[in-house]
Simulated assay, not measured.
Amino acid sequence: MSTAAFLIELNQDVAACRPVATCFRDLGADETIFLVTSRFRKRDATGLWFAETRDLAAQLGAALVEVDTVLDVVRALAGRSGALVSASETDLDAHGFNHKVFLAAPAGFTRITLQHGLECLGFNHNEAHDRAFGMRVGMACDIAASWFPLGRLHSVRSDQRDKVMMVGPPFGLSHPPVFGRPWRWRNGADPMHGLVCENLHSVRFGQSARVEFIDALTEFAAALALRDGSAELRAHPGGRYAEKNRIELPPNVSLNRAPLYRQSLDKFGFGISAPSSVLLDMVWAGIPTAVWTDGALDIGIYEGLTVVSDVDDWVRFAEAATRDPAPFLDAQRRYVAGLGIPADIPALYRDLYDVAMGPPA
């Protein structure tokens, strides 16, 4: 019996593992198990991500097992074999539990660490990652499942390079990137409406950058209000900086807490985010997308996207994207091509499944 086991430790692990779990089930895994840690339950203060995991388990006919210790995981996997998957496994303290689980995993399991973002520890670091965590981050996996070819991965330690297997981002399992909208685009008479994302908890942001971003958002909301426009503010699932710091939002800005895969993203005429992998989610969905910087942030991996800084930039971009998205979508096509993301992502995940689980008899 082949088992696909997914270790859920961080809130963001749910969205990263969800499409892979569905894919592996569809490819023939006899059994799917979600190993939900006690630390995940504590981090998930609203219960949203545990509910998502529980719903997914029900959809897939999977088992959901709550674990507290490494030994709990070993016991849950005893007598089984297959793939053990984590979207947050490195030798850093923040990923310590998953790392210890991988070191202790039963011999019958192929251990897979998923790259979970454009900038991801052990795969691709930004300058702030290197300053905070160093440049020699290791993993205990057998396979490091990457989004890009090895030549585009700047932070893979030399002794980890042979583990890398390019598969592409998991959200690419659902559909290819959208660069032309088959549905009706918002017309000039529609009020402007966009998605703004923040991950201000990240080590890359100092306090001055956080204040500058919130100030720009507040001024932008006022400019939108003059045009009968509105926006939704989405936080990183593991950070929720604006909520935790009780940032008062303007009346025409609402919080967006739902997982992206639960939403119809065509309602957004534009998207703006501080440097974060959600930028690629928006690009993939066909939303004209801009990256915000204070001028000092490392945004190298986002080169090719529209860049905004002050409120005038935000307004010009939002108006232009709402009026005519085509130039932005064309630029985003070139941006994705430049990243080296593979074209046939489902085929590569099938290869990953076959390597980890063994090809069908």
Rank of each mutant, 00 (worst) to 15 (best):
G229H: 03
G194A: 01
T69H: 10
D130K: 14
A347D: 10
R18A: 12
I301W: 03
V74G: 11
A94Y: 13
V311T: 15
R227M: 09
D266H: 04
T90E: 15
H116W: 09
D72P: 07
M139L: 10
A15C: 13
L200H: 15
P19H: 14
Y302H: 07
A76V: 09
V211I: 02
D190T: 04
A15Y: 12
A58D: 11
A58S: 10
A63T: 10
G138E: 08
G286R: 02
L348P: 15
N252M: 01
D354F: 00
V156M: 11
Y349R: 04
A78N: 00
P237W: 15
F6V: 05
D298T: 15
P288A: 14
E66I: 02
N11A: 14
P182G: 09
V336I: 15
S155C: 12
I301S: 07
P251A: 15
D55P: 00
I287V: 09
I272L: 00
D344K: 08
S38A: 09
D354P: 00
E219F: 07
R246W: 13
F179L: 00
G304D: 05
V74I: 09
I299W: 15
D30P: 06
L233M: 03
D310K: 04
R111K: 08
Q207T: 13
E219H: 09
V65T: 05
T46H: 04
A321H: 03
S81P: 02
Q115V: 06
R161T: 14
V283M: 04
A223W: 06
M135G: 13
R257Y: 14
F317E: 05
T90D: 12
I299M: 03
E303R: 02
R204Q: 14
S230G: 03
F328G: 01
E303H: 08
Q12I: 12
T322A: 05
V167N: 10
M135Y: 11
M192T: 04
D30H: 13
F50S: 11
D26K: 03
I287Q: 00
D294M: 08
G229E: 07
A209P: 07
E31H: 15
S208R: 06
G172L: 03
I299H: 06
T37Y: 00
I287G: 00
S254I: 01
L226K: 11
R184G: 09
V196K: 13
D142G: 03
A347L: 12
Y353P: 02
A343L: 07
T322L: 14
